[in-house]
Amino acid sequence: MRITLEGRTALVTGSTQGIGAAIAFGLAAAGARVAVNGRDADRAQEAVERLHRQVPDADVLAVPGDLATDQGMAEVVGRLRETDILVNNLGIFGARPALEIDDGEWRRYFEVNVLTAVKLIRAYLPGMTGRSWGRVLNIASDSAVVIPAEMIHYGVTKTALLAVTRGFAKEAAGTGVTVNSVIAGPSHTGGVEDFVYELVDKDLPWDEAQRVFMREHRPQSLIQRLIEPEEIAHMVVYLSSPLASATTGGALRVDGGYVDSILP
């Protein structure tokens, strides 16, 4: 299959590092004009420069702004009035005993992990439906289905994101716009390395720490390793393309078989 996204603009939130950066690279390599987002303007510009080195002829721009704030949301939407592909990748996570999660933290997780996606969909979906083409991708997690005991607040927000996806797919029915979730499994990013070391011996070398983490905390994984961000990006690029025109309202898994289900 040859995937080309030439002539399309994509916004990837939280794309200065990790999974978001890998998605931005994948979309740029497929020919899309890519808007890189992060809270810090300098880091967003650094990510743009890095993408230019990776894909020399890429059309990439920085749209910095803290999407969890009204001001940051207005800045991003003001700089990028329209987009053909919206990838809601922004999210926060961290381990916390369930009874120690206070109201403020519950609200913060919901506002960052769910409401930023809702607000951006509201901002960009009308333009997509008006042009009869668009792609909305919400990056969810296996934690949406297998709620982790050590961070139920994170899991709950990702479950909510699946419902957001299905609901807006119905809103976009018959318009040529598709709305899908990508359920990412345990992935190898810098933030996850920090998380792994919260749960295993900090003195272990990374390769051994990863094995211990997967064995003790994610034993359901069928590939028995962390997923590389590029592997998640491949699914996003496909779903962003014309080849995925009949896939909408779905939750597509890139989880290494972690979720014990025969359904997507």
Rank of each mutant, 00 (worst) to 15 (best):
R2E: 08
E6I: 11
A10D: 10
T13R: 06
G14N: 01
S15I: 00
Q17E: 14
I19H: 00
G20N: 06
A22W: 10
A22G: 11
I23Q: 02
F25N: 03
G26Y: 12
L27M: 04
A29C: 04
G31P: 07
V36W: 06
N37M: 09
R39S: 13
R39E: 05
R39Q: 15
A44K: 02
A44E: 00
A44W: 05
Q45P: 10
E46H: 14
E49C: 07
H52G: 12
H52F: 03
P56F: 10
D59W: 01
L61M: 08
L61P: 01
A62E: 09
Q71H: 12
M73G: 06
E75L: 11
V77D: 02
R81Q: 14
T83K: 12
T83F: 07
T83L: 11
D84S: 08
G94K: 11
A95T: 14
L99R: 15
L115V: 12
A117D: 03
K119V: 00
K119M: 03
L120E: 03
L120P: 12
A123L: 01
L125W: 06
L125F: 08
L125Q: 12
L125I: 02
P126F: 03
R131K: 14
R131S: 13
G134L: 08
R135F: 04
N138C: 11
S141C: 04
V146N: 10
E150Q: 11
H153T: 02
V156L: 12
T157S: 04
K158H: 07
L162Y: 08
A163I: 01
A163K: 13
V164E: 05
V164R: 05
G167I: 02
G176M: 00
S187K: 03
H188T: 09
H188P: 00
H188G: 06
G191H: 01
D194W: 05
F195A: 10
Y197W: 12
E198D: 15
V200K: 11
D201W: 09
K202C: 03
D203A: 14
L204H: 13
L204T: 08
P205T: 02
M214G: 06
R218N: 14
L222Q: 15
Q224L: 08
L226W: 13
I227E: 02
E230V: 15
H234M: 02
H234K: 13
M235R: 02
S240G: 15
S241N: 00
L243Q: 15
S245G: 14
T247V: 11
G250H: 04
L252G: 06
L252Q: 13
V254G: 06
V254F: 00
G256Y: 09
G256H: 11
G256Q: 09
G257C: 08
D260N: 03
